[in-house]
């Protein structure tokens, strides 16, 4: 059982991050957005975020089978489309910056599958979930907890 740490997300910051979340979704397929949220949350070990986005994905019509395979999408054959695979590869590269940059091949594949406007928003979505991951992991927010904002 984890105990949440006491601080809460500052109101103004939470509002701005909610605005970022909304803006990022503007040009993104809702199911693809959930795959991105879940994959980043897996990499960043955010239990709160996984709980929330797995539930949202299922609600939006995602299949349990694809969610089960998401952590191994590269080896999951044709369960994920070429466009989804490009988005997931980009999600991993943008989430794990500490291993060194975003490779040209990964970026080029994403640029082939998405328009520049879509791509800017996809990068924003990856950045947004990375932000939520940081906040929720830093305060050890429990899955389902609601008292994280001030």
């Amino acid at each position: 059982m984890t105990t949440a740490r006491g601080w809460r997300i500052p109101a103004e910051f939470g509002k701005a991050l909610a605005a970022l979340s909304a803006a990022a979704k503007q040009h993104l397929d809702p199911l693809l957005a959930e795959l991105v949220m879940i994959r980043a949350s897996q990499l960043n070990h955010c239990a709160f975020c996984l709980d929330m986005h797995l539930e949202l994905a299922l609600k939006k019509g995602e299949s349990q089978d694809r969610l089960d395979l998401l952590a191994a999408w590269e080896e999951a054959g044709d369960r994920f489309t070429v466009q989804e695979r490009a988005a997931l590869a980009l999600t991993e590269a943008v989430t794990v910056l500490t291993d060194g940059f975003v490779p040209d091949a990964v970026y080029a594949e994403a640029a082939r599958e998405f328009t520049e406007t879509e791509l800017a928003h996809l990068i924003a979505a990856i950045t947004t979930i990375n932000s939520w991951n940081r906040l929720m992991v830093a305060r050890r927010t429990s899955p389902g907890e609601t008292a994280w904002h001030s």
Partner: peptide, 21 residues
């Protein structure tokens, strides 16, 4: 690679608000 702020102005605006907060 990409002028992201021009392609996603609302995203940029929200980032500035986060920064200020």
């Amino acid at each position: 690679r990409l002028q992201w702020a021009e392609h996603a102005p609302d995203v940029y605006k929200a980032m500035i608000k986060m920064e200020i907060a």
